[in-house]
């Protein structure tokens, strides 16, 4: 029997991550990267942030955001390295770095969100 390809699953994760990142990252990076540090807007304090993140829906959204965005990165970056730099002979190392990184980040996100006080 022919070995089934993982490619459709990886592509679906890439695509899901593309959607999640497109909808949420611009506003989040604008707030946490620019507006809050530069004092344009007042950030929520520790208590309020904790209260927000503790909500099951927020936890779910943040988990999916981390999980899908990381696999989006892994898939896209893998092909950036293949096509952009033409380093096909390093494929196994690139795959390990990309998908290994994505899995590690996803596990970290699950742990942090699950065990939040």
């Amino acid at each position: 029997m022919a070995k089934r390809s993982n490619e459709p699953l990886l592509w679906a994760l890439f695509s899901g991550g593309g959607v999640a990142a497109a909808f949420l990252l611009p506003v989040l990076i604008f707030l946490y990267g620019l507006a809050f540090p530069l004092g344009w807007l007042q950030p929520p304090d520790h208590e309020r942030t904790l209260e927000l993140v503790q909500h099951p829906l927020t936890r779910l959204v943040l988990f999916l955001l981390c999980f899908l965005s990381l696999f989006h990165w892994a898939h896209r970056f893998r092909f950036t390295l293949y096509d952009g730099l033409q380093i096909k002979h390093l494929n196994p190392a690139i795959n390990l770095f990309c998908y290994g990184g994505a899995v590690t980040g996803t596990v970290a996100a699950a742990y942090l969100l699950w065990t939040l006080p």
Binding site: L28, L62, T80, A109
Partner: peptide, 26 residues
């Protein structure tokens, strides 16, 4: 456009650090 994915991953790292700090208290 392809390189934008690196910044997507970069933000996730920041978010993970933020969650870690959030658990550490005020």
């Amino acid at each position: 456009r392809e390189l934008s994915s690196v910044f997507v991953a970069f933000y996730v790292v920041i978010l993970l650090l933020q969650l870690h700090a959030l658990r550490g208290g005020p």
